[in-house]
């Protein structure tokens, strides 16, 4: 294993993130390679430095504020009416019925309109294709007369 490859694998080697066979090969390389040894030390120091910083000691007051804040928001969200409830609040039953009926009529009219348009289109296409097939026959007849 050459130094370049060891260098690439070093960040994982220092934290035992390598397959044992690969780690053994790097370890044997480190036995004789001074340059890679320095690199390993640098990585180890860097990792210790990263871990040396302990997070701040979060005191009871801060933790309580997190807990109470979350619980208060949950309670508030429970008390908040759902979308349907908020909708129903503004509309009485008769209005909802009228609105539904109107929506049903509009949708029905749309369906009929679309259906009729399609039927009309298909009839037009049929007529056009009929004309297109008849015209060459007339020409042929004309030619035969000449």
């Amino acid at each position: 294993m050459n130094c370049r490859r060891v260098e690439k694998l070093m960040p994982l080697f220092v934290e035992d993130d390598l397959q044992p066979a690969l780690a053994t090969r790097i370890a044997s390389h480190l036995e004789w390679c001074g340059k890679c040894n320095w690199l390993a030390d640098d990585y180890k120091e860097s990792q210790s430095w990263l871990r040396a910083s302990t997070p701040p000691e979060f005191d009871r007051a801060l933790l309580d504020s997190v807990k109470n804040g979350a619980l208060a928001q949950i309670v508030a969200s429970k008390q908040r009416p759902s979308r349907w409830a908020a909708f129903a609040e503004h509309w009485n039953r008769r209005q909802v019925f009228a609105l539904s009926a109107a929506a049903l009529i509009i949708v029905g009219a749309l369906v009929i309109y679309v259906y009729q348009t399609r039927v009309r289109d298909s009839r037009n296409i049929e007529a056009e294709t009929k004309v297109a097939t008849e015209v060459p026959q007339v020409n042929r007849e004309g030619n035969s007369r000449d």
């Binding site: 997070p55 979060f58 801060l62 933790l63 807990k67």
Partner: peptide, 27 residues
């Protein structure tokens, strides 16, 4: 909560954001 706020602090870099994030996490 301690683990959540610590992780949030490590991700965000300050305790105020970490506290807000922790609250949102539990929500």
């Amino acid at each position: 909560q301690r683990r959540v706020i610590t992780t949030a602090w490590r991700m965000l870099g300050n305790s105020e954001d970490a506290r807000d994030a922790a609250q949102e996490v539990f929500l």
